[in-house]
Amino acid sequence: MIAFYTLLRKEVKRFLKVMMQTIVTPFMSSFLYLLVFGVSLGSKVDNLHQVPYLAFLIPGLMMMSLMNNAFQNSSSSIAVSKFSGDLEDLRVAPLTPHHLLLSMGLGAVVRGAVVAIITYIVGIIFYYLQFQEILTVKHPLILIYFILAGGFLFGLLGVCAGFWARSIEHIAAFSNFILLPLLYLGGVFVSIESLPEWAQKFSQLNPVLYLINGLRFGVLSVSDVSLENSLLVSLLGILIMYLLGLLAIKKASFNRW
């Protein structure tokens, strides 16, 4: 338990030491997304699911920044440790693969949750300025669940990418060519109902769609997919990523780059 807590503490302390990069930069990008897409363009877009576009966008951006930051936290932690050589310490110390996965996964949840909450706060400020009312959370427990599940799942994905990567380019490539398309096509900015039918079917294969809509349901009580499916996909995703994480730790290298 002490080993798990120590590694979790280290993961959280690490991103707090570089807050400009881990907190302020995501805050700026959420601020700009909300201002440009939510406020400026949003006023010219019809309501989606009977809610203003700005309200529709806020949970999408929350989940996008949550996933991005959770992934970045664990993958960059491992990548930096591979550079500096201190990843070898984790191999040599009596830490089990479960210690590594749980503490790195939860460290990612903390960073992702902080960024998601900041995005929500910026969002409700913009929403209040535009509509003079506060955007309240409709289902707080569902919101909390999807913050935890989304952060943990993408934290685990970052662990896998970090361990399997043989250079920092591998992580960047994974992030740019796999993660980013999944996020952008996962319903952050638009409802899949606005897509052509073939694209809707394609989107339904994207697991990120279920996570984004799960969190959107928690905030707004609207979703493109059923809550049951969102819960199922999130749990299945965590299970698969956890098993892949165990495999990555067992098979991949702890040696320095």
Binding site: K10, K13, R14, K17, V18, V80, S81, F83, S84, G85, D86, E88, D89, V92, R256
Partner: peptide, 12 residues
């Protein structure tokens, strides 16, 4: 264990 190559942990 003291490894041969120096570890350069930058954050702490």
């Amino acid at each position: 264990v003291v490894h041969q190559e120096i570890v350069n942990s930058g954050f702490f």
